[in-house]
Design a protein around this nucleic acid. Structure first.
Lengths: 344, 344
DNA sequence: CTGAAAGCGCTAACAG
DNA sequence: CTGTTAGCGCTTTCAG
């Protein structure tokens, strides 16, 4: 077959099969009752012409496009990707196609995308972003359901699926306590950043439940390795002893790890380390590999997509849904075994 | 306005404005010649009803959907993202929406996506993936133009936009030579990996042009930091002297960097380091920050999108298009002060 | 300057 | 069992 042929229409198929368009339609969609021989003839014709029904024309009828829009508010990055993938996966299973729209943090651009998506008659919209902080809703009274994933809508009535960051932080502390550490420091991102606040508060709270407190007040800074390294300077300069550091991100944890080792502290023997995000590049690259909190972003995306599908089918799930985080243990909190003696 | 209203149709608008559908259409699209007052009346009605023309119905006429499909062959990752973003950006400017399809490396799934995209009557398709190696074409005689970005099609007649990795490797060597290093080692990814091969070959070739050769044969391994660290062991164990290492990726470079410093070699004073990918997380996290080769993936994506748009408009660009890489200099090849320059 | 009518590709009634 | 007809929402002649 040559290049750039025209798309065959169902009329072409019908003509080739020697039947009417209506019959061809039924044959191809398994509707009505037709002689098996006719059905086959039509199907053969369709195959011969590489016929693919025009989804646009079809949805003119059904009222549904089997299409959803995915808008990333800020630029599509490390956090939105797993969410996107999870969603795309769940939606694909439901035969839904996904329009990708990168808002680039520009509200104008975002509104433009909302309009385009609506004009394309998407069945629903998923909004995601790189920060968990609540954001103004993408629109009010929109004619299609909207689900916020990772990021939350400021309107509590909207459906938002978010990670339970506080729960994650508590699990980190739980783990450190479980391995016998009690003098725990906390190094995290910028003080004004929602995630930094929430995680720090949860850590403090969890310790308080045990009658403990942080070895020193949380150190707020940036999300970078560089900050992690700098923070170690502050930790060591302070007079407080510490036997563990819970970090607000894996990048910070890695910086902390490198600097501690450079200062002659052993990880995990002298200082145990827990990160946040479970970003393989960091957790596996660090020496030793880092224990971390996983927000299960892909699952979160999948879950958001499922909620959207449900909403499209008339069963919305309004409100904020917190998805559990889980702990992934690696060598930064487990003292390696001494060489094994031969068994028996 | 309440939630989940129905989409207004142009008939609703026409009725509200007290005109016929045809007139409404003209008014909204700036066609024909209408009294300005009528035009305004229609526009007001449209705004009042939040009318957005049904793109599907519209394309039934125009034959174009202003939609393209983007298929990632293997899972959407660090390399496909910038490509996606660049493409999305260029396409958005052309008022095109993007269907995102994650092939997950599964040919079945990929073919399924091609079908769906065709049934949705996309105006064109962009194929991308995480490896630069040529891959079998996504289909033959497809009714819409296809552009391969980053990854190349095995059919040389197809339009592929790829990074000039060999050129990039040559620039790395150029740079090292320019700062006076001549005993250059090369640590890179798996031997069977196309990028590793191409980059290594180009480095060797560039050195040969100067009558030089690598300080020792290329070390093939993995793309990880871990391998970078291990490789340093091999480098130091060998008897060959070296004053620079060109690495096949930034992750490798970082591993090399850490291990060299741990072994007491100064970077860049004793050993200069150049990575590949210019991945900020690695280049900025390393100590010192890494000089690297940037493939300009976003530009590549944008360029691919532009070629696709051109093809859609009847001006295809068949063949393989290599986009230049560029060098980004950081401290791993520049001695801060005093300037090294033992040059002649 | 405006309205009526035909048709884009397809599905779903309803006749035959 | 199959063909005919009437739309889905929109654009576009072509009359008026």
């Amino acid at each position: 077959m040559g290049k750039l042929e025209r798309h065959a229409t169902i009329a072409d198929v019908a003509a080739l099969a020697g039947v009417s368009v209506g019959t061809a339609s039924k044959a191809l969609n398994g509707r009505g009752s037709l002689r098996e021989e006719t059905r086959k003839r039509v199907r053969d014709a369709a195959r011969q012409l590489s016929f693919e029904a025009n989804a646009g024309a079809r949805s003119l009828h059904s009222g549904r496009t089997y299409t959803v829009g995915m808008i990333t508010t800020d630029t599509i990055g490390r956090f939105s990707i797993p969410v996107l993938m999870g969603a795309e996966d769940a939606l694909g299973a439901g035969e839904m196609s996904v329009f990708l729209c990168d808002g680039r943090g520009d509200p104008i651009r975002e509104q433009y995308y909302v309009k385009t998506l609506l004009s394309r008659r998407v069945d629903g919209i998923i909004v995601t972003g790189r920060r968990t902080e609540a954001r103004p809703p993408i629109g009010v009274g929109l004619p299609v359901p909207v689900v916020y994933a990772f990021i939350a809508s400021a309107d509590p009535a909207d459906c938002s699926v978010v990670p339970d960051e506080a729960g994650g932080a508590r699990k980190a502390i739980d783990h450190l306590l479980a391995i016998g550490r009690t003098r725990i420091a906390h190094v995290t991102g910028p003080e004004h950043h929602n995630s930094a606040q929430v995680r720090a508060a949860a850590a403090v709270e969890r310790l308080a439940e045990e009658g403990l407190s942080l070895a020193m007040p949380p150190l707020f800074g940036g999300w970078s390795e560089m900050w992690g390294r700098q923070a170690v300077g502050l930790l060591l300069a302070g007079q407080a002893e510490f036997d563990a550091v819970f970090c607000g991100s894996d990048q910070i944890a890695r910086g902390v790890c490198d600097a501690l080792r450079a200062a002659g502290r052993r990880v995990p023997e002298d200082v145990a380390l827990v990160g946040f995000d479970n970003w393989d590049v960091m957790t596996e690259g660090a020496q030793p590999p880092l224990t971390s909190i996983d927000m299960n972003l892909e699952g979160l995306g999948r879950s958001a997509a499922e909620k959207l599908l449900a909403a499209i089918n008339g069963a919305p799930s309004p409100g904020r849904h917190a998805m559990p985080c889980h702990l992934v243990v690696r060598e930064s909190t487990t003292v390696p075994f001494p060489p094994l003696a031969p068994a028996g």
